[in-house]
């Protein structure tokens, strides 16, 4: 069971905002998806190691080096900019 309160909490954690109808709908959807997922508990897994990846992968190391990138190219995607910076609304209150 996923309550509407759970959905509101998840929305806050996810930086999403929903109206009441959406909250109710997501509570219902997530409820049925997690009900389905409960089937996993039928499988005993106490002695099984979790897999984060399917293929064994080792960490790759390299020298830390600066690769120059044209700042103007990156700033093409800035909704707002000031000089060579991405501009955002005020973060701290006065």
């Amino acid at each position: 069971m996923i309550s509407t309160e759970d959905v509101r909490h998840l929305a806050t954690l996810s930086r999403l905002r929903f109206n009441e109808a959406e909250v109710a709908q997501y509570a219902k959807d997530l409820g049925s998806i997690f009900d389905y997922a409960k089937a996993l508990n039928e499988l005993p897994t106490d002695d099984i190691a979790p897999s984060a990846h399917a293929i064994p992968i080792e960490n790759v190391f390299r020298e830390d080096g600066v690769v120059p990138f044209d700042a103007d190219t990156l700033l093409i995607n800035a909704p707002e900019q000031e000089g060579h910076a991405f501009k955002v609304p005020q973060i701290l209150a006065d």
Binding site: L10, S14, A37, L43, T45, I48, P50, S51, A52, A54
Partner: peptide
């Protein structure tokens, strides 16, 4: 995003996410 946030949140991580990773091994 909501499903992912739920299964990674403390209290549910072991029951869902870690469990799923173990089934992935199986």
């Amino acid at each position: 995003i909501l499903i992912g946030t739920y299964v990674l949140s403390s209290g549910y991580y072991d029951a869902y996410y870690k469990k799923a990773q173990k089934v992935r091994t199986l």
